[in-house]
């Protein structure tokens, strides 16, 4: 999923301070799962903003609404009946959602409430960790199912570097050495020889080096 974290309240207060009425829009997808921008977080933030602004003598009306998905135009249309009654929108979705709301409602200022972080998985309750950088040409078949691009601090495709110690990365004891994980897994699968194959220099175009990326499915595209 795409993970995110709420921005400091101080920053959000400054975004909304000039406005009388805002619409705070959550998203029921990834940011709900990572407890950053779902219905509950929308409620928490609306209360927090109102209470914080009140102390500097400002009252603000905040309408709360959480969409099924903020990255699809069909769902964003749902905001139409509410949009005229507000001066600005604050989105609690990832950066995709913020941009889609801004694209649909061109005359309303749209502010992000979250910092979008990474594509990750839930390691355990309350802990999310990066797993994929969307490089566009998956290497996992060669690396035992563990991604060196997302999980090696130096993005080494033929690691490990000389800083791998007892399974940990040189940058922090809290970071696993991706190449230790890869090696352990290749060994467990009896695929040690795979390690000796040099992974050649990567073509970064599918990773975004070729400009903004787009997928077009001709059979589906309208």
């Amino acid at each position: 999923m795409i993970t995110a974290e709420r921005k400091p309240l101080e920053e959000l207060i400054e975004y909304v301070r000039p406005f009388k009425r805002i619409l705070l829009v959550g998203c029921n997808e990834c940011v709900t799962v990572c407890s950053a921008g779902g219905r509950k977080e929308v409620g928490l933030l609306a209360s927090g903003l109102k209470m914080a602004l009140l102390q500097s003598g400002t009252t603000i009306e905040i309408r709360e609404h959480t969409l099924e998905r903020q990255c699809d135009p069909e769902y964003i249309d749902e905001l139409l009946p509410m949009i005229d009654g507000v001066d600005a929108v604050m989105s609690m979705a990832c950066g995709c959602g913020v941009q889609e709301v801004a694209r649909r409602y061109k005359d309303k200022p749209v502010f992000p409430a979250l910092n979008t972080k990474f594509m990750g998985a839930s390691e355990r309750q309350g802990v999310w960790a990066e797993r994929c950088q969307g490089c566009g040409n998956c290497l996992l078949g060669m690396t035992g199912g563990i991604c060196p691009i997302a999980r090696c601090s130096k993005r080494l495709m033929n690691g490990p570097c000389g800083g791998s110690v007892t399974g940990k990365c040189e940058i922090s004891k809290d970071v696993d050495c991706a190449w230790q994980l890869i090696w352990d897994r290749l060994k467990a699968l009896g695929l040690e020889d795979q390690y000796l194959k040099i992974i050649p220099a990567k073509d970064w175009r599918p990773a975004g080096g070729g400009g903004p990326r787009k997928i077009i499915r001709e059979d589906l595209a309208a």
Binding site: N158, G159, P160, C161, G162, G163, S164, V165, T166, G167, C177, W179, Q180, W183, D184, Y195, L196, I198
Partner: peptide, 13 residues
């Protein structure tokens, strides 16, 4: 560095 058994293989690469 670790893993020790990879150190020679990495040299081979």
């Amino acid at each position: 560095a670790d893993p020790f058994e990879l150190r020679v293989l990495r040299l081979a690469k």
